[in-house]
Design a protein around this nucleic acid. Structure first.
Length: 805
DNA sequence: GCTCCTCGAGTTCC
DNA sequence: CTCGAGGAGC
């Protein structure tokens, strides 16, 4: 019999037990049992182990103590629920008719319920085997409608003519619905589907069993390499139940198929010299790159595909081959891939692994490669360009700048996290094979709790199996919580949470410290996100108002929020300023994040439409500013030989003055002006990159977009080509001169030219002294020096540069 | 094999 | 919102 059915039967046989398990019963026993769940989370955080034993204990106590809650007091329950967070143990749900009474039903929750928070209501629905989805569709059975539901959801309800429930009706459904077992809970079709699922689970469990027996007898192909056969019972579950066939890899079906196709086509592609793109356009590539988060079967899939296509996978881990040299040596490009392959002889790599024409190179953790030696990724890219064996690279993030050299040479196969449904059947199979009884909704809870990490679910189950063979919803929830991955909320998630409609609503169970905690997920980013997005909500606080009143109230709220933000900024400067008052962090959290949100929280701050959350523009602008400032610094250092003035003076006075000399001619005369422009540039030591900077820093009529539109592409390429084909004067530093340079303050003006450059010109020195006395004397400005002198300086620089070489 | 539908994921840094 | 994977139905 399948686990789900078993548990239903069990629950029917022991109704009282079920009731207690599902957080009904008296307030005290419940408060103890579900301590960490019911409100006041931060304080009632009990050590997981202790909590778990406690649950079991309470359960058995009550069982002995007689039947619980024979009659449900609706009015009292409601009152208790409304008492809310201050009375956390008192929320109550009526006893369900059947434990899986909501099975086969899909729910959508929208709006604010009167006494349950969003998470709680979803949890309740799941507890009774209901299916909860986010978007209403024609497949949705019920929409549980609260206050101020989203307009798009209301539209969907109307469109699909969905049944809606209030909170009380929802609870009533739980109390009365007879579930799928009896009554009309399951249609014929649904029953069939369920049976099919169960059969599939049983079949694959049988298969697994058979395979293990075979392995024990030593017939297994892979396991039997060592002299000893390993008893599967001694293995870790993660090894024991590692996927053996592609069918057992969860999710990413499409990508895996593509990979197989590519490997199967390999010899053909090789013959065609990678000119025939093939079905997916993959056959132009000599390498593929699998990317995706850890623990989703990237490596496993690569190995299985390679084996299935008849290749011998050779795995090179980044930690084995961290440097460029090692990559080249250990893969032995020339010998193995070309000669070795042509000659048909066997070659071994540095690690002593035989490489033949049927080898397939799997480079794992490519991300980690360049940690020690920058050349690692580049060498790999070079290797891929000439390889005669397929290369599969595995990395976490394809778009990382590190991966740049690889991106063009490899076909990208992004893997995604499988969702709970995809993993469920496999876990259920294992559970069944291990003769454990765990209902599907509990398994789901475990899976989502650890973020779809199959290995972790298996670890949890194997540990659990040491003491128990069954697991109910409550226990599953505890176990998941105890093993919860340190949740990595991105700033986007944080913002959505804290500016969303639920965090500050009446039914919210989140304490102040919970909210502050959100800030600490990424304390340097979250405030920026708040600042960027705090005006994009429909504040719940003005929900009930209309017209000018609403506008006025909203403005007032905005004013308060912005004031708080600005206070937060003051605190921030105390933290990050010279005094480093880190103890002010919580204050900053409240002022920059929690308080502004408390005024303006509300719906419309998630995805969808014009209200989408945006990334803080500040960051983009800031990095742009830094970049340009750096570029400007380069320009100043180069021009310094000819021009006095610090960075800002260059920016304000000299660049606009240079514009008519080196940019405008190109706009007006096109290619014919290139020679003159280059001459001007050389006179001021301006390089080709600096030219770009000059354009980029233009404003108004000199704005880069305007300017670049007016310069023909041909002109620009002519400039680049001609510039690159010539020698140019290069200002350069003499070591002893640099040694003399006084230490300058960071951000201050760069040292003046005579100190830094090889320009032992007496006249210049004299110039400088005079200039110090009378900076306004226009004749002394280097910009207005006569042309012959300029030229002399230029050639001198040139000669010096050459001499140095 | 094709089409339609459902449903969740996605955006980034001194 | 928008896209694409995956599933159901024909």
């Amino acid at each position: 019999m399948a686990p789900a059915k078993k548990s239903a039967a069990k629950a029917n046989a022991e109704p009282s037990k079920h009731n207690i398990m599902s957080f009904f019963g008296s307030a005290q026993s419940q408060g103890a049992a579900t301590g960490s769940k019911t409100g006041n989370r931060s304080q009632s955080e009990v050590k997981p182990k202790a909590t778990l034993t406690k649950v079991t204990k309470v359960e058995s106590d009550d069982e002995q103590g007689g039947k619980a809650t024979p009659k449900f007091n609706w009015a009292a329950a409601k009152a208790a629920r409304l008492a809310g967070p201050s009375n956390p143990g008192s929320k109550a749900v009526p006893p369900a008719a059947v434990s899986d009474c909501l099975a086969g039903l899909s729910f959508v929750f929208t709006g604010e319920l009167s006494s349950f928070s969003r998470e709680e209501s979803i949890d309740i629905a799941k507890r009774f085997c209901g299916r909860v989805v986010g978007q209403p569709s024609s497949k949705t059975d019920y929409v549980v409608l609260g206050d101020s539901a989203g307009p798009s959801k209301l539209a969907a309800i109307k469109k699909h003519n969905l049944k809606t429930l209030s909170e009380d009706e929802f609870l009533n459904l739980i109390a009365t619905r007879k579930g799928p077992g009896n009554g009309k809970g399951l249609t014929e079709k649904e029953k069939k589907k369920r049976d099919k699922e169960e059969k599939a689970i049983r079949d694959s469990a049988k298969e697994m069993e058979a395979r293990e027996k075979k392995a024990v007898r030593g017939e297994g192909s892979g396991v039997a390499r060592g002299a000893k056969t390993i008893d599967p019972k001694m293995q870790l579950w993660t090894d024991r139940y590692a996927p053996q066939t592609l069918k057992e890899v969860c999710g990413n079906k499409g990508q895996v198929e593509k990979l197989q196709q590519w490997l199967n086509d390999w010899s053909g592609s090789l013959k065609a010299n990678f000119k025939k793109p093939g079905k997916n356009g993959m056959n132009n590539f000599r390498g593929v790159m699998i990317t995706g988060p850890p623990g989703i079967g990237k490596t496993t899939s690569a190995h299985l595909c390679a084996k299935l296509a008849g290749f011998t996978p050779i795995e090179l881990n980044a930690s084995d081959a961290r440097s460029k040299k090692l990559v080249e040596n250990s893969t032995n490009i020339q010998n193995t891939s070309l000669d070795g392959w042509m000659g048909g002889g066997e070659q071994t790599n540095a690690a002593g692994v035989v490489i033949t024409d049927k080898s397939c190179l799997i480079m794992d953790e490519v991300d980690g490669m360049s940690a020690g030696d920058r050349g690692g990724v580049g060498a790999l890219a070079a290797l891929i360009r000439k390889t005669q064996v397929p290369i599969i690279c595995i990395a976490n993030d394809r778009s990382a700048p590190k991966m740049k050299p690889l991106v063009n040479g490899t076909f990208g196969l992004p893997f995604r996290k499988p969702d709970a449904a995809q993993i469920r059947s496999r876990i259920m199979t294992i559970v069944f094979k291990e003769k454990m009884q765990i209902p599907a909704n509990v398994v789901d809870e475990l899976i989502t709790g650890v973020g779809s990490d199959i290995r972790q679910v298996l670890n949890m189950l194997s540990t659990w199996k040491l003491h128990n063979d069954t697991m109910d919803y409550e226990e599953g929830k505890m176990l998941a919580k105890a093993n919860e991955k340190y949740s990595v909320l991105t700033p986007f998630n944080v913002i959505q949470k804290i500016l969303g409609p639920y965090m500050f609503s009446a039914t919210s169970r989140d304490t102040l410290s919970d909210k502050i905690e959100l800030y600490f997920h990424d304390y340097s980013f979250v405030p920026l996100f708040i600042q960027e997005n705090y005006l994009k909500t429909n504040p719940s606080r003005v929900r009930d108002l209309d017209g000018p009143r609403k506008a006025l109230k909203q403005l007032k709220l905005m004013e308060k929020a912005s004031e708080s933000l600005s206070d937060g900024d003051l605190v921030d400067s105390l933290i990050h300023g010279p005094e480093q008052h880190w103890t002010l962090m919580p204050t900053h959290a409240v002022l920059s994040t929690v308080r502004p949100s408390s005024f303006l929280y509300g719906p419309g701050s998630g995805y969808g439409g014009p209200n989408a959350m945006t990334f803080p523009q500040w960051l983009g602008q800031n990095s742009k500013q830094n970049k340009l400032s750096r570029a400007l610094g380069d320009v100043q250092i180069r021009m310094r030989l000819k021009v006095s003035g610090d960075k800002s003076e260059i920016r304000l006075s000299y660049l606009p003055a240079m514009f008519p000399l080196i940019v405008k001619p190109l706009m007006e005369q096109g290619s014919s002006a290139v020679d003159d422009v280059i001459q001007e540039m050389d006179d001021y030591y301006i390089s080709r990159e600096d030219w770009d900077t000059v354009v980029e820093l233009g404003l108004g009529e000199q704005k880069d977009e305007v300017v670049l539109k007016k310069i023909a592409t041909a002109t620009k390429t002519a400039l680049t080509r001609k510039y690159n084909s010539r020698d140019h004067p290069i200002p350069f530093h003499k070591a002893q001169d640099l040694g003399k340079v006084p230490k300058k303050l960071p951000g201050g003006p760069a040292p003046d030219l005579e100190e830094a450059f090889d320009l032992d010109d007496a006249v210049d020195d004299a110039d400088d002294e005079k200039k110090a006395v009378d900076p306004d004397d226009i004749k002394l400005d280097r910009l207005i020096q006569d042309a012959s002198k300029r030229k002399a300086a230029a050639t001198k620089g040139k000669g010096a540069a050459k001499g140095k070489k």
